[in-house]
């Protein structure tokens, strides 16, 4: 089994990227569930998370501080974005919302380019760079961080939506906004909360991946699109679907990189998206709509 070692290596890097896509997909899903909006600016939250963390770390070299600070900052950006760009829309047709959030994404990216320039910045890995040997393959501590924090986030989200009152209220809003309002759930608050929460998730994803890929102003577009693809592949609005979609996408990409060519990596990702859209638009785990 000569091919086993590289295969395992691809699998590891695929799962790591997949976990990042999953986090981003969850961000899409949370907003979609609360509002039926797809926020095309979600990827820029990932970029902002990475770059903010890098800047904070530059000033005060403490990773926990950088992590927390960046998440808080980006959460604020998410809230402001909802307040300024989406709430004033008078006729919220899907087309209008797509155009507005795409515009928002381009605007945020442009501002980030003005602030950070076009260079790529590094963030040190959370706990060293010594590879851990895993049979014939190696895994970096940062890969484990990514997988671990993603797993914890998913479990925490699941608990939040199932066990807490606020989480249940958000789900109620997703099922039926009017009924939710009738029983006294403030739908507007839930929308805000969803934007804040998904911005935080996005930022987290960005900080996690920064040590592996560097942080640069235009990293968000592709990550955002992949995250959205993951959400669709899994089934839009489903927590488990988002995670599954992310991992499937990440692994498919890694295998494509390994066995076809790295240039076609993104093409494979979007081909997978098109296939799912055309053959099973409700996603892998989605039920009938």
């Amino acid at each position: 089994m000569e091919n086993f070692a590289p295969l395992l290596q691809y699998l590891i890097s695929g799962l790591t990227n997949g976990a990042i896509y999953a986090l981003i997909a969850l961000g899409f899903g949370i907003i979609y569930n609360a509002t039926t909006i797809i926020n095309f600016a979600q990827g820029e939250m990932v970029m902002l998370g990475a770059l903010c963390a890098i800047s904070i770390y530059h000033v005060a070299p403490s990773l926990p501080l950088a992590f927390a600070g960046a998440v808080v900052l980006v959460t604020c950006v998410g809230l402001v974005f909802e307040r300024l760009a989406l709430r004033p829309v008078k006729d919220p047709t899907p087309i209008a919302l797509i155009i507005i959030t795409v515009g928002g994404a381009v605007l945020i990216k442009g501002v980030a380019m003005l602030i950070w320039g076009k260079e790529a910045y590094a963030l040190p890995p959370f706990s060293g760079n010594d590879p851990i040997h895993l049979g014939p393959a190696t895994i970096l501590p940062q890969n484990l961080w990514v997988l671990g924090i993603t797993a914890i986030s998913v479990l925490a989200l699941e608990a939040f939506f199932r066990l807490t009152l606020v989480g249940k209220a958000m789900r109620a809003c997703a099922y039926n906004t009017r009924a939710a309002r009738l029983v006294g759930i403030a739908a507007g608050r839930m929308v805000q909360l969803s934007f804040g929460l998904s911005a935080a998730l996005g930022a987290g994803a960005g900080i996690l991946i920064a040590p592996l890929t560097l942080g640069v102003y235009d990293m968000g577009t592709m990550l955002g699109l992949k995250g959205f693809s993951a959400a669709i592949i899994g089934g839009l609005g489903s927590l488990a679907g988002g995670v599954l979609g992310g991992l499937v996408l990440g692994v498919a990409e890694a295998l494509a990189t390994g066995f076809i060519s790295s240039g076609y990596r993104d093409a494979v990702a979007f081909l997978l998206l098109l296939l799912v859209l055309f053959l099973r638009p409700q996603g892998l785990v989605g039920g009938r709509k």
Binding site: I38, P94, I95, I98, L225, F228, S229, I232, L236, S261, G263, Y264, D266, A267, F270, L271, L273, L274, L277, F278, P281
Partner: peptide
């Protein structure tokens, strides 16, 4: 043919995905 059966976000994503695939092919 398949994409226009989809609505709103799905159509946006399908056309976007197609655009990116073509772009990659032009490069590769």
């Amino acid at each position: 043919l398949p994409a226009l059966k989809l609505r709103g976000y799905y159509l946006a994503m399908a056309t976007l995905g197609f655009g990116i695939i073509v772009y990659i092919i032009l490069n590769e």
